[in-house]
């Protein structure tokens, strides 16, 4: 299978260093303290935040405790997913998401509380981890939880000697290495970087890491924009503008 044509176009018509259409919506659920939907191309994730709140669970005297769960809708993928236990992948992803997003929260300001993060993958077309992180970032902001910085995430890959940005499902199943990254733009820090599948020469890895950082910066730009728009709407609704 050809992932990049000689003209330099990918299976969905993008250039190798092009992101998919990013869609962000805040406050999509009524019941949650904070909620957001994030779409990267056809991948669509719903995130909900409950808390900071007091629960019967184990709480920490000095800081907030963060919990995270990822669920997948049966109709999200090409083939209908059979009902069953959540796989080890979902558990691992949930742990990664929890650690990454918790690192960005001022946990010390919220002692003896718990923050619950729930994700529901409505459509899966590659880059689930990144889309979850972006949706979670927006939902945390919507819930008014004190954050250290913005977080933006995207995935890069390497197929047919070409670095690719923001891979879709077909490209993710191409067997090349995958690097999901989460980045804080103002602090200029990498929050999370993984490399799954395959191995890479160090030089190529550096190229990919740079590309991922650029992609994350573009994503955070969009996230900032949608947060600004949402806040403006709220201000107008309250009559303070």
């Amino acid at each position: 299978m050809e992932y990049v044509t000689p003209e330099g176009l990918r299976t969905d018509g993008r250039r190798p260093r092009e992101l998919r259409k990013l869609g962000c919506q805040l406050g999509t659920l009524e019941s949650a303290d904070g909620s957001a939907t994030c779409e990267m191309g056809f991948t669509k994730v719903l995130a909900a935040v409950f808390g900071p709140r007091d629960t019967a669970g184990k709480l920490h005297p000095d800081r907030a405790v963060v919990r995270c769960q990822v669920a997948t809708a049966p109709f999200s993928a090409g083939e209908r997913r059979r009902r069953g236990k959540r796989g080890p992948l979902a558990t691992e992803q949930a742990a990664t998401i929890r650690e990454t997003l918790a690192e960005n929260i001022h946990l010390e300001l919220l002692p003896r509380t718990q923050i619950d993060l729930y994700f529901h993958v409505l459509q899966a077309d590659g880059g689930i981890l990144s889309t979850c992180l972006n949706a979670g970032m927006l939902a945390l902001a919507d819930a008014g939880i004190p954050l250290k910085d913005l977080v933006g995430s995207c995935t890069v890959g390497y197929l047919e000697s070409t670095p690719l940005l923001d891979l879709n499902y077909i490209e993710e199943s191409g067997g090349g290495p995958l690097l999901p990254m989460a980045y804080q733009p103002n602090m200029d820090k990498i929050l999370m970087l993984q490399m799954d599948k395959g191995k890479l020469p160090v030089e190529t890895f550096e190229v990919l890491a740079t590309l991922a950082t650029e992609g994350c910066r573009a994503v955070t730009g969009q996230i900032r924009q949608s947060l600004m728009n949402h806040t403006k709407q709220l201000a107008v609704a309250r009559g303070s503008v």
Binding site: S31, L46, A71, Y118, H120
Partner: peptide
């Protein structure tokens, strides 16, 4: 038929 309650709706 299959009905799932999303934890996004309520813990």
């Amino acid at each position: 038929f299959n009905v799932d309650f999303s934890p996004c709706g309520s813990p």
